[in-house]
């Protein structure tokens, strides 16, 4: 299925902040492993709230739950800061020491794949780390 092109941003949310020191919890997972999109983009993707989407950039891909949100223009997707958003970010800091966390070009598609729980996401990282 065709995906849609978006500009991806990340940032803090209240629910992310409340679970900042409680990251192994279900609440953190529910608060952070999500992607907020405006209504039009949800329709273009053919997903409804809480269905899974795959977000892909030049640096990685990740599966998260789609959430409808007001206040975004078309073509902007938001993933709260955290491990799922960072799966899509490059470690190249271009001389600033700081990765480019915001304003990434991304493609989003609907998917049947499951959202990885934090321990599974990191298990995958560990496997990939040792392959390298």
């Amino acid at each position: 299925m065709e995906g849609i092109k978006v500009i991806l941003i990340s940032g803090r949310t209240i629910a992310q902040g409340e679970n900042l020191e409680n990251k192994m919890s279900e609440e953190y997972f529910n608060a952070v492993a999500i992607c907020e999109l405006n209504e039009g983009d949800m329709a273009r993707l053919g997903v409804s709230a809480d269905e899974n989407v795959k977000v892909k950039t030049d640096y990685g891909e990740v599966v998260v739950k789609a959430k409808k949100a007001k206040g975004y223009p078309e073509g902007i997707a938001f993933i709260p800061m955290g491990p799922w958003a960072n799966a899509l970010v490059s470690a190249n800091t271009r001389g600033a020491g700081m990765p480019a966390y915001k304003g990434l070009d991304a493609v989003i598609t609907k998917t049947d794949e499951a959202v990885l729980y934090i321990t599974d996401l990191f298990r995958k990282y560990k496997e990939e780390a040792w392959k390298k």
Partner: peptide
């Protein structure tokens, strides 16, 4: 702090090594 949550994936993977 918690770099595993806040660093890009490739940086996190090195922590695994």
């Amino acid at each position: 702090s918690d770099p595993a949550s806040h660093f890009p994936a490739d940086a996190v993977k090195h922590l695994a090594r």
